[in-house]
Computed example of a mutant assay.
Amino acid sequence: MRIAVVGCSHGGLDTIYKTIHRVDADTKKSGELPVELLLCCGDFQALRCNADLYTMKAPTKFRLLRDFHNYYAGRKKAPILTIVVGGNHEAMGHMWECFHGGWLAPNIYFLGYAGCILVDGWLRVAGSSGIHKAENYKAGHFERLPYIPSTLVSAYHTRQYGVERLMNLNNNGPKVDIFMSHDWPLGIERYGDTQALLREKPQFENSIRSNTLGSRPLESLLKTLKPTQWCSGHMHVRFTAEVRHDKGKSGGSECTKFLALSKPGEGRAFLEVIEIPTPEAHQPAKGVRHHTPRLFFDPHWLAIVRAFAPFMPLQAKAMPLPGATQVTALIAEAFAWVQQNIGDNGMKAIQDVQIFTQTAPPTRSFSGEEDTDTTPRSYSNPQTQAFCDMLGIANQID
C-alpha cells in the first residue's frame, strides 16, 4: 500500500492534496499505483468556522481559518482517505467532540485522543494526539468550553489515560504497522543522523544534551509496541531514524523506521510516500489501478476502550488506573464481549457506525469572511454517541 505522510498540516489541505496529485501524475508514468492513504501527524487545524479560531492556541497572526472549513461545509471533498492525529495547535472544542475518534469531514478520520483502527481490515494504524507536559500527564481531561488561557494549553497535553490504553495494544493483538504522533519519542535523535539534525535545527542542541527532546511516554510506547513504522510532525524538520529492538520470537531483530516531516511550504520536506507490503489476501484485483481503502474498528482496541471506560478521568485530579493484573482480566472480558456483540467476530466497518454530521454551523462562503461569530459553543457529536452505544459504555464526552 502506498501511503503519503505529512508532518504538520497547519490547515494547508489544498496544498497537501495538490502535492499528492502531482506525485501520482509522476508515478503513473512509471506504472506505479497511486497513493491510497494519507496520514497527517498533528496540527491539522480542523477549524469549522470563525468561532473555532478561539479554541485554538496560537499567536494571533497564525490564527487563520485556512482550508478545512470548505471540506467540512461540503464545498470540497478530500480526494483521498485521510487519517489524522491531533497536535498542539488544534480546534480543541471540535477535537473533544470526537474524543474516541470520528469523521471530521467526509473522507477525513480523526483517530481520537488515542486510538487504533484497521485499514482494509489488515493495516493496523494507531496514534496518540497532543504533546507531552509532565505537569499534566497524570491529570484528567478537565478542560471544557469556555476555555481560559491555561486550559486552552493543557487541553492538548497527552494524558496517562490514553498512553496506558495504547500500551495494551500488543496484549494478544496483532503488531502495530504504523504509529502516528505529533510529538517525537524521547531520544529518537540518537537513532539517526544527530549532527545533520543539529545543522538543520541548532536550537535543539540543549534539549539533546539534556535528553529532553521529545516525549518520554511516547518513548515507552515505541519500546513496548515496536511498530514497523512511526510517523511524527511537530519539529518542522525532516528526520529519519531506525530503532532496532530486542530479538523477537523468531530470533530476528525487530526494527521501527521513524519518519518526521515538516509543514507545507515552498522548499519544505512536508510530504513523503512510504510503502507497506499488502498481504496477498488483500491485493486488489488485477487491472485495478485505483483502490479506495475502507476503515474498520480494531476489535482489540474496542476491548481496551470498553475495559478502561469506567476509569476515564474527567477531573483535574485523575483517579488511579487499575493494576496490570486487573487490566489483563478486564481486557480479556471486554474482548469476549466485543467478539460476541460487534460485527463479524468483532470486525465492523467504521462507516456502518459513525456517519459524518455537521455539528457547528459551517461557513457560508469559500473565504469564510462573512462569518463573524467569535463565540465558541459546545456541541454533541452523534458519532461519539454511536460509538459509545456500540460499545455499551456511557458517553462521558457530552
Results as ranks from 00 to 15, higher is better:
residue 304 I to M: 00
residue 309 A to G: 13
residue 165 R to P: 03
residue 294 R to Q: 10
residue 297 F to I: 09
residue 104 L to R: 13
residue 280 E to K: 12
residue 230 W to S: 02
residue 187 G to H: 04
residue 362 P to Y: 03
residue 213 L to G: 12
residue 165 R to L: 09
residue 303 A to L: 04
residue 222 L to P: 02
residue 1 M to W: 03
residue 162 G to C: 00
residue 386 A to N: 06
residue 223 K to Q: 01
residue 340 Q to V: 03
residue 204 F to C: 06
residue 151 T to D: 08
residue 249 K to R: 11
residue 195 Q to Y: 15
residue 101 G to Y: 02
residue 197 L to C: 15
residue 2 R to S: 12
residue 197 L to Y: 13
residue 194 T to H: 07
residue 166 L to M: 08
residue 38 L to T: 10
residue 265 G to W: 10
residue 190 R to V: 06
residue 21 H to F: 15
residue 254 E to W: 14
residue 315 Q to W: 06
residue 90 E to M: 12
residue 61 K to T: 09
residue 273 V to A: 15
residue 231 C to R: 01
residue 36 E to K: 14
residue 161 Y to I: 05
residue 74 G to P: 11
residue 373 D to T: 07
residue 179 F to C: 03
residue 97 E to Y: 08
residue 339 Q to L: 07
residue 293 P to S: 01
residue 315 Q to P: 00
residue 285 A to G: 03
residue 250 S to N: 10
residue 293 P to Q: 02
residue 29 K to Y: 04
residue 118 L to H: 11
residue 290 H to G: 09
residue 56 M to G: 01
residue 149 P to F: 00
residue 40 C to T: 12
residue 297 F to Y: 14
residue 206 N to L: 03
residue 19 T to G: 09
residue 210 S to V: 05
residue 57 K to C: 01
residue 309 A to M: 03
residue 13 L to G: 09
residue 50 N to A: 00
residue 87 G to D: 02
residue 250 S to Y: 07
residue 298 D to P: 02
residue 330 L to Y: 05
residue 317 K to P: 11
residue 210 S to M: 02
residue 275 E to V: 03
residue 177 D to P: 10
residue 253 S to C: 07
residue 152 L to C: 15
residue 201 K to N: 10
residue 247 K to T: 14
residue 382 P to Q: 02
residue 42 G to Q: 00
residue 186 L to H: 15
residue 320 P to Y: 00
residue 297 F to L: 02
residue 315 Q to F: 15
residue 256 T to H: 07
residue 212 T to L: 09
residue 66 R to P: 05
residue 348 K to W: 14
residue 25 A to T: 13
residue 186 L to Q: 15
residue 231 C to T: 09
residue 268 R to C: 11
residue 250 S to R: 08
residue 350 I to G: 08
residue 158 T to Q: 06
residue 22 R to D: 15
residue 218 L to N: 09
residue 257 K to V: 15
residue 133 K to E: 14
residue 211 N to K: 07
residue 216 R to M: 11
residue 55 T to Y: 03
residue 267 G to N: 05
residue 292 T to Q: 04
residue 164 E to R: 04
residue 25 A to W: 10
residue 181 S to F: 10
residue 318 A to G: 11
residue 84 V to G: 12
residue 72 Y to G: 06
residue 18 K to C: 09
residue 38 L to E: 08
residue 109 Y to T: 12
residue 43 D to E: 10
residue 73 A to N: 06
residue 266 E to S: 09
residue 398 D to Q: 11
residue 234 H to C: 06
residue 139 A to S: 11
residue 19 T to K: 05
residue 49 C to Y: 15
